[in-house]
Amino acid sequence: MSLAALLVLADGRFPAGGHAHSGGAEAACKAGRIHDAATLAEFCRGRLHTSGLVAAGLAAAAAHGLDPAELDTAADARTPPPALRLAARRLGRQLLRAARATWPAAELDALAAAFPRGAHQPVVLGVTARAAGLGPLDAAHVAAYESVSGPATATVRLLGLDPFEASAVLAGLAPELDAVSGRAASAALLARHEGLEALPASSSPLLDIAAQAHAEWPVRLFAS
């Protein structure tokens, strides 16, 4: 694996559309559940251990080379709200465009042909990691990190939260990010032999409900 390739893929400036999504932070800020660095940390911790873990598992499995179509179905099953399925497919398609330009690969072309409306973002992320010469644990790390870096950046914009505090929140979560990534990668390895049921399937009902409600807001800053 190439550490530098991992940095390119994980860079928040990688042009894959993520900047327009808050990962549920906009709804949580509006509801008052996030109002400072401490509550941002709690929100991120919850997201990391639920949808972050699920995304990391899917990404790691895709990076192992498991069938993207089956993984996409598994992602649907783990993503109840239609709004989040739509957002995940949009982000998947946007990531795929950036990935094909950045790390051209037949596997990415095949994925684009099979999913003209987009596959779930973590699945695309895993295939992208393969194309970039990265492994399943790397893919899991990127997915896990994205599950918290998006909300942290969005909160800086939404609340005017001190950006240094937001960075400190992310740094404070580092040990848990490593642990979640490791768990996801182990599950993906298990899934190779035992089937996709071995992948994590945790969920946060409040994130799901808030995301569906957010999609109906007439006025909002973020797409999700």
């Binding site: 400036r13 042009p15 900047h19 999504h21 914009r157 800053l221």
Partner: peptide, 15 residues
């Protein structure tokens, strides 16, 4: 939707 950054959506990340 531009996530509070209209210039990002037309320049840095046009996805």
């Amino acid at each position: 939707e531009t996530g509070a950054c209209p210039h990002t959506a037309i320049r840095d990340d046009i996805s």
